[in-house]
Design a protein around this nucleic acid. Structure first.
Length: 420
RNA sequence: UCAUCUUUAAUAUUGC
């Protein structure tokens, strides 16, 4: 009864992407592509669901039927490529835009700036900024926020103050995202005092913190074990009418576990549940690893059971947590069993799964087995990273086996593996 | 007529 485009929008909104694709497939002849708004919504939803390929298929079909995509449509797909760091493809689309006579706008450039920042191409970003200048497109606070994050991550986060000044000099007003980016970077670098400083600086500049700003600061404080201060921010936010969300709760729960207070973590789990947030996959993995680290492996296993009973499929992270727990208690057999379980459950072990086992065998003095796991990774197309190599290098060094340590070190250089 | 589409910030697991 509904016009097809309204139906399409509805399906996208409730997340029925397969049905939406079906509607597109059936109605392509009848002009479903006329309402570009809803097609764009579908593209965005597909990208968010890691199904960029499906979006590209429709995109090709659309063009095949002589329909010219809009600027927003191009921007959406470019963003999709940027999110997965496929910058060559992103640039190809920009070229295509130009050939069909659509000029990239500020959002196009912002998307590309974000993409190159994420892919580590700072040089390219400055090329883009030049190009924007030539075209008379003035960077805005979004442009600067993306760049700020990349610069803080690459360089020393101590540059925050200078960069903030630069943004103002360029004529943009730092916004809550600017400050949150700074607070987050500082917090992740362990500089919680600086992070707090910028939090209050933000308030002084008349920007009211939101839940995300608070959770960033709370995370920084938790990371350094300052649970009292973190709890203080948590209380402040509630007093000021901000409702903590699951991220805030999960962050504090992880903090309490790490600080060796699973009891406090549990009472927050209760509060969270009472506030209308049932345990989510983050809560489960936080509790499982947290309880195990606090020496309560039995309780961790109970949570593992509970999550399965609740119909929450144990993720790779949950398996990794248990593998680590059993490695650290000297049960390599059980750890290996959990590793095997993953494949049986249709999960693909990630770098962290392998690294955890490698570390386990190194700790057990079985560096040879650790090396064979390293080889296994290559066979299974799972690229080893800096952690994989350094774990083994340290193990050999500890045994006094300089020759082998050096051999792995050279191999690491040769492989130019991913940094941590 | 209006509205609806695109860009930037927060949480869990591995080595030192």
């Amino acid at each position: 009864f509904f016009p097809d485009d309204v139906l399409l929008r509805g399906l996208v909104k409730v997340g029925q992407l397969d049905m939406a694709l079906q509607v597109i497939g059936e109605k392509a002849e009848q002009g479903i592509y006329k309402n570009v708004l809803h097609v764009n919504m579908l593209f965005k939803a597909l990208i968010e669901a890691n199904r960029l390929i499906h979006a590209l298929k429709i995109f090709a079909d659309m063009k095949g039927r002589g329909i010219c995509p809009t600027l927003v449509c191009y921007n959406t797909l470019i963003s999709g490529f940027c999110k997965v760091s496929m910058m060559d493809e992103a640039c190809r689309l920009v070229k295509e835009m130009n050939t069909v006579g659509i000029s990239p706008d500020l959002i196009t450039f912002n998307t590309l700036v974000y993409g190159f920042c994420k892919a580590g191409g700072i040089v390219q970003v400055f090329v883009l900024l030049e190009e924007m200048k030539e075209k008379g497109i003035k960077p805005d606070v979004v442009t600067y926020n993306s760049l700020l994050r990349a610069l803080l991550e690459a360089d020393y986060p101590g540059k925050a103050q200078q960069l903030l000044t630069v943004i103002k000099d360029k004529g943009s007003s730092p916004d809550i995202i600017t400050f949150t980016t700074i607070i987050d970077s500082l917090g992740k670098a362990g500089k919680f005092k600086q992070a707090s400083k910028f939090f209050f600086l933000m308030i002084n500049e008349g920007i009211l913190p939101n839940v995300i700003a608070c959770s960033s600061l709370i995370h920084g404080l938790c990371k350094q074990g300052h649970m009292h201060a973190a709890t203080g921010i948590f209380e402040d936010m509630k007093r000021n009418g901000l409702t903590p969300n699951r991220v805030v709760y999960n962050t504090l729960i992880a903090g309490h576990c790490k600080a060796g207070h699973p009891d406090r973590a549990w009472s927050l789990v209760q509060e969270m549940t009472k506030s209308g947030f049932p345990k989510d996959p983050y809560t489960y993995s936080t509790l499982i690893s947290g309880l195990a680290k606090a020496g309560q492996l039995e309780r961790a296993c109970e949570v593992f059971e509970e999550m399965r009973l609740a119909g929450c499929r144990p993720s790779v992270v949950v398996h990794n947590s248990l593998i680590d727990a059993y490695c650290k208690t000297g049960h390599m057999d059980i750890a290996c069993r959990f590793f095997g379980d993953m494949e049986q459950r249709g999960l693909v072990p990630d770098v962290c799964s392998y690294n955890t086992l490698i570390a386990g065998f190194c700790r057990a003095g079985e560096v040879g087995i650790a090396c064979s796991i390293l080889l296994q990774m290559q066979e299974n197309k799972c690229g080893a990273d800096v952690i994989s190599y350094t774990t083994i290098i340290h193990a050999f060094a500890k045994q006094g086996n300089q020759a082998e340590a050096l051999r792995i070190l050279l191999e690491m250089k040769k492989m130019r593996c991913a940094p941590d």
